[in-house]
């Protein structure tokens, strides 16, 4: 809406002697061309990844006789190799398990926390909120060394459970923050009515607040899922055995061996590892964007 208005004003502001064709070329040069370059650069690595994943080795390593930008005889060899000769399905399963479980755990914890901070208002609630927000600013690369010793103390080293318990440390602050914003937008009168009618607090949370906060829960869930799917440093530091590795770590530590890199398999692995988040994301783009921008605005 706003840009329509600006554009109309823009069009009105351009000098009267300028012909419409002129302003059109100008628009192409100043807007569409840079935009096309941006999109090309942002997407090229994915194109290259996909192309390499389906290219037979002969074409992959010979740019003289084959045009590198296209495949003449696509092959599924790299993907077959990945699925049947490596533990890739197992890594995918572990990654999925960890991402789903830690997302669920963080959603549970942050919904309750956000509800307590925003709705049950108590004396220190702004400080608890601030504390949780500050936790988001502590980068993982400061924490992983001491956290590794904590994980060892708890006897969780090399277990996916360690990741499930640790990932919420960066998911909970974000989700809580997002959900506080959502709860704020739900009129408090609704809860008061329910209280008057004799509903308990838990009933209110379950039957009134949560159903109304579903968009917020979806946003938080998607965000948590992609963040845990992408997590790297903790998975690298806390998991040792090949069978328990997550996809990002496994590709880098298990598929890269010796001096000869199997680029085809590496790219196939990266492509397959990106697909679940990309699919998940494309289904819920709007929620994702609103959570990203909503969190920044909050």
């Amino acid at each position: 809406m706003s840009d329509v208005v600006t554009n109309q004003v823009n069009a009105a502001a351009t000098k009267p002697e300028m012909m419409s064709w002129d302003s059109k070329t100008r628009r192409i040069i100043t807007i569409y061309l840079p935009l096309a370059v941006f999109v090309f650069i942002l997407l090229f690595p994915f194109y290259w990844m996909a192309l390499t994943a389906f290219k037979p080795n002969a074409e992959l390593l010979d740019y003289k006789t084959h045009n590198p930008f296209w495949i003449t005889s696509p092959t599924l060899d790299h993907i077959k190799h990945l699925l049947f000769n490596t533990a890739y399905p197992r890594w995918l399963w572990i990654t999925m398990l960890v991402a789903v479980a830690s997302t669920f755990l963080s959603l549970l914890a942050s919904t309750l926390a956000a509800y307590a901070i925003e709705r049950l208002r108590f004396k220190g609630s702004p400080y608890v909120g601030l504390g949780i927000y500050l936790a988001y600013l502590v980068p993982q690369s400061i924490l992983f060394i001491p956290l590794a010793t904590v994980i060892v103390q708890f006897g969780l080293f090399d277990s996916p459970l360690a990741l499930i318990l640790v990932f919420p440390t960066f998911l909970v602050p974000f989700c809580t923050w997002l959900l506080i914003g959502y709860f704020k937008s739900i009129p408090y009168e609704l809860e008061e009515c329910a209280l008057v009618d004799g509903a308990t607090r838990l009933q209110i949370l379950r039957k009134i607040t949560l159903p109304l906060a579903v968009p917020g829960l979806i946003s938080a869930g998607i965000f948590s899922f992609t963040l845990s799917w992408n997590e790297f440093i903790y998975s690298l530091a806390f998991i040792q055995s090949s069978a328990n590795k997550t996809v990002p770590v496994a590709i880098l530590t298990e598929l890269v061996s010796g001096d000869v890199y199997q680029w085809g398999a590496l790219m196939a692995g990266s492509l397959l590892g990106s697909l679940p988040v990309a699919l998940f994301y494309s289904l819920f783009v709007d929620y994702y964007v609103s959570s990203l921008t909503g969190a920044v605005k909050e």
Binding site: P45, F46, M49, W229, N230, L266, G269, S274
Partner: peptide
């Protein structure tokens, strides 16, 4: 909205996986 969705892709895809693509681009 489609453009916006496309533009966000590099942010969604696991960093390590796109880093491997860059590694190959920098071969």
């Amino acid at each position: 909205s489609m453009l916006r969705a496309i533009v966000l892709l590099p942010w969604i895809v696991p960093t390590v996986l796109s880093a491997i693509a860059f590694w190959w681009i920098y071969d």
